[in-house]
């Protein structure tokens, strides 16, 4: 077990290192002078002294190794540079907004699991029947609606037409817990529509696979009631793989936070990213992307560890 945990943590750290390096490299790998590129736009070439200033600002005038070392030591000290616009430390802004994004991700994930897993089990048990086919069809549709379309339509329907909830925004939990949760509901539900459909599919497939396993036949041959066979010998076994797949795909599946935070004015990290990209504030963008990436690596790690608790074959090694 410890060996497994240490291995996973080590791999996660390696990933953090690799991602950090990739983010660093992107600006150098793109053809052209980064400073020039960042300043160009609207067809007007920037003045040479402005480009020079930018180059110094980003440290691009230093040899690449020095740049890399400065960059990594900066990150290790929690220093992501300062914003182009107001010289504000990027790390500070990130620290303020990160919890809100985490909250949104966790709420959306919890909601998706609560919807997707039971329905997936139900569909698998009713394999090929009416319920199964209806659910599968619904999931196919839900997976095909882009997240910003869902979000926009939800605003249109629930906020503009029905006036049940505000169109978006944020109140700190400490100020007004109820209002806070109301604001959280819509973006979380928007993400959950696609995410729960994905979880539904994975659960359905895994449970179907598990149903074919020999130990399920053994359990039936023992004369256990159907409900016990399903609960103890099918669902319990299917949960490990389902969790792993959820973990592996969380990155792709939750990429939608960027769009959703934007649609609902949720003042998290991802929405901030859009603003930063719009103003082409490279240090900000870089910092946010790094932090979000770390976040996903950590979430993956968490799921991996959870899986090891679920599967004795790993737990005991």
């Amino acid at each position: 077990m410890w060996r497994y945990i240490i291995k996973r943590v080590f791999i996660a750290l390696m990933l953090v290192f690799v991602v950090t390096s990739i983010v660093f490299l992107v600006i150098h790998l793109i053809p052209g002078d980064p400073a020039m590129l960042l300043l160009s736009g609207g067809g007007v070439d920037p003045a040479p002294e402005v480009v020079d200033a930018m180059r110094r600002r980003l440290g691009l005038d230093l040899p690449i190794w020095t740049q890399y070392i400065n960059y990594v030591t900066g990150i290790l000290q929690g220093d992501f540079g300062t914003s182009f616009q107001d010289d504000h430390p990027v790390a500070e802004e990130i620290a303020k907004r990160l919890p809100r994004t985490i909250e949104l991700i966790l709420a959306a994930t919890a909601l998706s699991i609560l919807i997707g897993v039971p329905l997936g089990i139900l569909a698998a048990l009713q394999h090929g029947k009416y319920v199964d086919r209806t659910l599968a069809l619904g999931a196919g549709l839900m997976l095909s609606v882009p997240v910003f379309v869902t979000g926009t339509l939800m605003v249109l329907l629930f906020a503009q037409e029905l006036r049940w909830v505000p169109a978006g925004g944020f109140v700190a939990f400490s100020r007004d817990p109820v209002q806070h949760l109301i604001f959280l509901l819509m973006p979380a539900a928007t993400i959950a529509i696609g995410f729960s459909a994905a979880i539904f599919r994975m659960t359905r497939t895994t449970v179907l696979e598990t149903l074919k396993r020999d130990w399920v036949r053994t359990a039936r041959a023992k004369g256990l009631p159907r409900s016990v066979v399903i609960r103890r010998h099918v669902v319990r076994n299917a949960m490990g793989p389902v969790m792993t797949v959820i973990g592996l795909q969380m990155g792709t599946l939750l990429g939608g936070t960027v769009l959703v935070e934007y649609v609902f004015n949720w003042p998290g990290l991802s929405g901030f990213l859009v603003v930063a990209v719009e103003s082409r504030d490279y240090p900000e963008v870089q910092g946010i992307i790094l932090v979000i990436s770390f976040l996903f690596i950590m979430l993956n790690l968490l799921v991996d560890l959870l899986y090891s608790v679920l599967d004795p074959r790993i737990r005991l090694e």
Partner: peptide, 20 residues
């Protein structure tokens, strides 16, 4: 494996920042 495990839109935004 590494690129695949991240939200694809993040990498896209990083590049958009540089290139516009």
């Amino acid at each position: 494996d590494i690129i695949l495990s991240f939200p694809p839109i993040l990498l896209a935004l990083l590049i958009v920042t540089i290139l516009g």
